[in-house]
């Protein structure tokens, strides 16, 4: 599995750290259920999933990667800072 970093090009999986599903972080004062959802609960689809990956041994960018969990096919890679996925809602 290789990821195409928007800044560094196609790179080996070993350069990346996997965070998990790209979810919107609740506001600090959101209720317990909102935080439980964010921290613990997962849709966990067998198919396309938007994820956060960190280019740890490359440019240091956080990426949002849309990847098919049933086939490992990479569908889209974008900088997390511009993708609108993950981070505060």
């Amino acid at each position: 599995m290789r990821l195409t970093c928007p800044l560094c090009g196609e790179r080996d999986r070993r350069e990346f750290y996997y965070k998990g599903a790209a979810l919107h972080r609740p506001a600090p004062d959101a209720d317990l259920d909102a935080w439980h959802d964010y921290v613990n609960l997962r849709e966990n689809p067998a198919g396309p999933l938007a994820e956060l990956w960190y280019h740890e041994m490359g440019c240091g960018s956080w990426l949002t990667v849309t990847r098919n969990t049933a086939t490992h096919e990479i569908l889209e890679v974008a900088l997390a800072s511009t993708s609108g996925l993950g981070g505060p809602a």
Partner: peptide
């Protein structure tokens, strides 16, 4: 490993990643 899909049939979301 397929628990999330089966639970979703009953409208449940589990604290599980496969």
């Amino acid at each position: 490993g397929r628990s999330s899909q089966v639970a979703a049939m009953a409208g449940l979301t589990l604290p599980i990643e496969s």
